[in-house]
Amino acid sequence: MTKDETMAMLAEVLAGIAPEADLTTVTAKDDLREALDLDSMDFQNLVIGLHERSGLPIPEEDYPRLFTLEGMLAYFAAAKRA
């Protein structure tokens, strides 16, 4: 998955969870949970949305890799090669 595809997917999922969230204010290394004020339920809903759109199983042990934009882009970029 390209960077643009991942960002588009993330923006689409976030729109349903935190409609006021503005990804342009988030830097690559920010913790998304802090920057966008996502609680455990929000983050789980984010994972569900990413799972449904990407088809990846996203086990819980992978969650820390999705905490930042940088990590998320790497995660879905790697998924394409797998």
């Binding site: 339920m41 789980q44 996203i58 819980e60």
Partner: peptide, 17 residues
């Protein structure tokens, strides 16, 4: 909880809460 969730797809996972 970790073991239970490991066998579940994201929509079926439980939160610690």
């Amino acid at each position: 909880l970790d073991r239970t969730n490991a066998g579940r797809a994201p929509p079926d996972r439980l939160l610690p809460a």
